[in-house]
Amino acid sequence: MSQFTVSGTFEARDGQQAFERSVEAENESVAEEHVLSQFGAEHNLKRTQIEISEVTAA
């Protein structure tokens, strides 16, 4: 598995909040899904409230 850095924004109470997360995944698509799942669980957000702008291999 490879290390990926996923960055983007999500809807917070104060407006858009930027984030950058490192995850271990098989490919970029799996890394995106993992981050969407984590933010949904941690911040009670729907996938439509999270915008991923970049996924890079670290």
Score class of each variant (00 low, 15 high):
M1G: 10
M1A: 11
M1V: 09
S2N: 13
Q3W: 14
Q3V: 15
F4H: 02
T5P: 03
V6H: 00
S7F: 05
S7D: 09
G8S: 08
G8Y: 07
G8H: 05
T9D: 09
F10Q: 05
D14I: 08
Q16H: 12
Q16F: 10
Q16P: 05
Q17K: 10
Q17E: 12
Q17A: 09
E20D: 07
E20M: 05
S22L: 12
S22D: 09
S22V: 08
S22P: 05
V23Y: 02
V23H: 03
V23S: 02
E24L: 07
E24P: 02
E24H: 08
E26Y: 13
N27V: 07
N27H: 12
N27M: 07
E28Y: 09
E28Q: 13
S29R: 10
S29N: 06
S29I: 08
V30L: 09
A31N: 03
A31H: 02
E32F: 05
E33V: 02
E33A: 06
H34N: 11
H34S: 08
H34T: 08
L36G: 00
F39V: 00
G40N: 01
G40F: 00
A41K: 06
A41M: 06
E42Y: 07
E42G: 01
H43P: 01
H43Y: 12
H43C: 05
H43I: 07
N44S: 14
N44F: 12
L45W: 04
K46W: 02
K46A: 06
R47E: 06
T48M: 08
T48H: 11
Q49G: 01
I50G: 00
E51W: 11
E51Y: 10
I52R: 01
I52P: 01
I52S: 02
S53P: 07
V55A: 06
V55E: 04
T56M: 12
T56W: 08
T56D: 11
A58N: 13
A58G: 15
